[in-house]
Computed example of a mutant assay.
Amino acid sequence: MKETMRSVQRILAVFESFSIDRTSLMLQEIADRISLPKSTAFRIVQSLEKAGYLVRLEDQQYCLSFQLTRLAGHVRSTLGIREISRPVLLQLADRTRETASLHTLSGSHRICIDAVATVAAPLRMVAQPGEQVPMVAGAGSKVLMAFMPPEKLSAMVVEVARLTKRARAEIEKELQQIRDQGFAVSHGERLLGISAISAPIRDAEDQVRYCISVGAPTVRMRINEHEIVRSILIAAADISRQFGAATVDMQDEIRFLAKDTGTITHRISD
């Protein structure tokens, strides 16, 4: 079973080694990108070429074939972020034993799209689908702000600075830190005694239009903060991958961003 899973991971890694900037690659480049010996990469690439999923060009570079376009046409047109994220939210709620939720941005408000809590607790954070909150505080709002396109972010920072009486430079510094570490943590910013951790969800265009969050009473969050950060980074990467983000890039990002919290990631090896 492990050998089969490893073979599948390697095949997917070959597909994902291609990018918009590099639509064709030499064999050695593919091997380098998936961290495999050239001989092992050659066997995988040769099999994919024979199956019609890769094309070898005249200059000995490889590119993806139209077989993948054909398969992409079978993807359900109605498959949306809520449908993709729901199973991951359930797993995250189970793992953290807290409330997991999905959010997006609409104008100057953050909207809760979905929320689940699988474990009954006498004290827990409650998030309601459809709930709208101003983009002035909280981990989810900060994540959505941090990854906004620069032209939209500037106006939002001005508005948040006006409403919160904070300096623009202070807000911009905080948002840069969130971009650098890949997640946000807030304690009692919106509701006293309630904390949240949020991480961005990327799409096929590497844009962040959604974020995933875990909310909990501050007393429990502070005890389990590092573990929840690990769990939410993995969950955000899982949703992002299914939403079209580049898997290899996401794995590298988790490995880099979550190293201080001890996240365990799987590296493809020979």
Rank of each mutant, 00 (worst) to 15 (best):
I171M: 12
T265A: 02
T99C: 05
R43K: 15
G73C: 06
E58F: 09
R10G: 15
A245H: 09
M250W: 00
D206W: 06
F15D: 02
K259D: 12
L64G: 07
I113G: 04
G193W: 13
V88S: 01
I20A: 07
A155L: 02
A199V: 11
I171C: 08
A100D: 05
A199I: 08
V185W: 14
L79G: 03
E174M: 11
L233G: 06
T218C: 01
L79H: 04
M5A: 13
Q9Y: 10
P200W: 04
I268W: 06
L27C: 06
V14M: 00
G244I: 10
I239F: 03
D114K: 03
I223Y: 05
V185F: 09
I234G: 04
C112A: 08
L123S: 11
A72M: 12
G130A: 05
V158G: 04
R209I: 05
I171V: 15
E189I: 02
S65A: 11
I111F: 00
I264R: 12
S154V: 13
P129E: 13
D260G: 15
A127R: 04
Q207R: 14
S7W: 10
V136Q: 05
M135K: 03
L54R: 03
V8N: 01
V143S: 00
D114T: 11
L175I: 05
P129I: 13
L12C: 07
R166Q: 14
A246W: 02
S47R: 01
D249A: 12
V88I: 12
R97Y: 04
S7I: 14
P134G: 10
C63K: 05
T247P: 07
T265E: 01
K165S: 14
T263C: 12
Q242A: 12
V229A: 00
A115C: 04
A245R: 08
H109M: 03
I228P: 00
A13W: 03
V229E: 02
T96F: 10
V158W: 06
V208A: 10
T99G: 02
G215I: 04
H103A: 13
R10I: 11
A137S: 10
A236L: 10
V214R: 03
E83Q: 13
G215N: 09
L175D: 01
R202M: 06
T99Y: 03
I194S: 04
F243D: 03
R241W: 08
K38R: 13
K50G: 11
S24G: 02
G52I: 15
Q251I: 13
E159C: 00
T23K: 10
P149N: 09
L12V: 14
V119L: 14
S240C: 11
I232W: 01
T265D: 02
F15W: 00
V119M: 04
S101W: 01
F18C: 07
T69A: 11
G140L: 00
S7G: 00
V75F: 08
R82G: 09
G140P: 11
S35Q: 11
I44P: 09
T78S: 13
L191P: 03
V219M: 07
L191E: 09
D249R: 09
D270A: 15
Q67M: 08
S101G: 13
S195E: 06
S154K: 15
V126R: 06
A167M: 08
G262P: 15
L144N: 02
F15R: 07
Q181W: 10
V126Y: 02
T69Q: 00
